[in-house]
C-alpha cells in the first residue's frame, strides 16, 4: 500500500525501503511471516551486510527513522517510483528516471489524465505515471506477455495502486487498444520493437480534440520508421530527443603547492622545508563511465477539430 500517497507509519504488509548506504538499499515487506521456497510459512527474515532483520519488527515504526542492526544501523524510508525503478526485478529492459521525467512532462500528464501505455514491461514507468495521474486519472497498460502482465498486476495490487491502473494481456500491434478505449485517452506512450504497427491504432483512442503521443526506441532506424508512419497518420510537431544524466562524486581535495621561488636564492633553505603549503578545494568528479545511450524519445501532437 505504501506507494499510494504519503504515509507516516509502517503498516503491516507494506513495502519498505531499507537504506544502508548510497549503493546498498533494498525493498522488503513489513510482514512477520512469509512463504519459503517450499511453500512453508516461515519467519520473514531479511539478511543485510550489517546483520539480519526480522521484517515484522518494522510494523508501527515511523518512516525516515533509524533502526539498529547487529553490526550497524539502517534507515527505513517510504518507497517512491524512483526507488522502485532502481530496485524492481528486471523482466525486460527498463526506462530510467531521466527519461521517465521527460516523458511525464512532455505527455502533459496531470491528476486527471487518462493514459495508455504499451508495453508494460517491468512497470518502471507505470509507477511514475500513476503517481502523476492519481487520484482522478487512470492508466491502461498493455503487454503481450501473459506472465509479465500477471506479475505487474500483482505488484500494483501490493503497492496499493490497483484502483488507478488496468493491466491487460494484449498485442496492440495486431489487435489495437480495444473498442472500450476509443475516444478516451489524453496521452499514449509506446515502448515497442515495432511501434509503427501500433501507431495505426492510436488516432482512434484520443479524446475529441486530440492528445499527445510519446514513443521510446533505442535505435535510429526505429525512430525514422516511426516518424514517417506518424507523419502519414496526421501527427504534428514531431520532436525527437535524448536525455542522459550524469551524477557527480563530490570530493574534498588537497593539492600540495611547490615552492620553487626559493631556488632563486641560496638562503632560507631550512624554513622553506618546514612550511609545506596546500591548496584545499571542493570538486565534483564525473564518473569514468556513464550511460551514453538509453533511447530516443519521439514526441508528437495529435489534433483534430471536433
Amino acid at each position: 500500500m505504501s506507494f499510494n500517497g504519503y504515509k507516516d507509519l509502517i503498516v503491516e504488509g507494506e513495502s519498505v525501503i531499507l537504506y544502508l548506504t548510497i549503493n546498498q538499499f533494498y525493498i522488503l515487506e513489513a510482514k512477520t511471516t512469509t512463504l519459503s521456497k517450499k511453500g512453508v510459512v516461515v519467519q520473514n527474515i531479511f539478511q543485510t551486510p550489517y546483520g539480519s532483520l526480522a521484517c515484522g519488527d518494522l510494523i508501527g515504526k515511523k518512516y525516515g527513522t533509524k533502526i539498529q542492526l547487529k553490526k550497524g544501523w539502517a534507515y527505513i524510508l517510504q518507497p517512491t517510483p524512483e526507488f522502485w525503478t532502481e530496485l524492481l526485478p528486471h523482466r525486460t529492459q527498463i526506462i530510467y528516471t531521466p527519461d521517465i521525467s521527460m516523458i511525464l512532462l512532455c505527455l502533459e500528464l496531470k491528476p486527471t489524465s487518462i493514459v495508455i501505455e504499451s508495453g508494460t514491461g517491468s512497470g518502471s514507468l507505470s509507477h511514475a505515471i500513476i503517481r502523476k495521474i492519481k487520484p482522478s486519472g487512470h492508466l491502461y497498460t498493455f503487454d503481450f506477455h501473459e506472465t509479465r502482465v500477471d506479475i505487474a498486476r500483482n505488484e500494483f495490487k501490493e503497492h496499493g495502486l490497483s484502483q488507478y491502473v488496468t493491466v491487460q494481456t494484449r498485442d496492440v500491434c495486431t489487435d489495437g487498444f480495444g473498442k472500450d478505449l476509443e475516444g478516451k485517452a489524453d496521452s499514449v506512450f509506446l515502448d515497442l520493437p515495432q511501434p509503427w504497427l501500433a501507431a495505426t491504432f492510436t488516432s482512434q483512442v484520443f479524446k475529441r480534440g486530440g492528445g499527445r503521443l510519446c514513443s521510446f526506441s533505442p535505435c535510429v532506424e526505429q525512430v525514422q520508421k516511426m516518424c514517417s508512419a506518424l507523419t502519414n497518420l496526421g501527427y504534428q510537431e514531431i520532436q525527437t530527443m535524448e536525455v542522459l544524466q550524469s551524477q557527480f562524486a563530490i570530493q574534498k581535495k588537497k593539492m600540495s603547492i611547490l615552492n620553487l621561488d626559493m631556488l632563486k636564492t641560496s638562503n632560507n633553505k631550512e624554513t622553506v622545508k618546514n612550511e609545506k603549503e596546500f591548496s584545499n578545494f571542493i570538486t565534483s568528479v564525473a564518473p569514468n563511465t556513464l550511460p551514453g545511450h538509453t533511447g530516443y524519445l519521439t514526441l508528437l501532437l495529435f489534433h483534430q477539430h471536433m
Binding site: C227, T240, M241, E242, L244, Q245, S246, Q247, F248
Partner: peptide, 12 residues
C-alpha cells in the same frame, strides 16, 4: 546526489 544532464534534439 548532484547531477546534470546532456540533452539533445534530433532532426529525423
Amino acid at each position: 546526489k548532484l547531477s546534470t544532464n546532456f540533452m539533445r534534439n534530433y532532426q529525423v
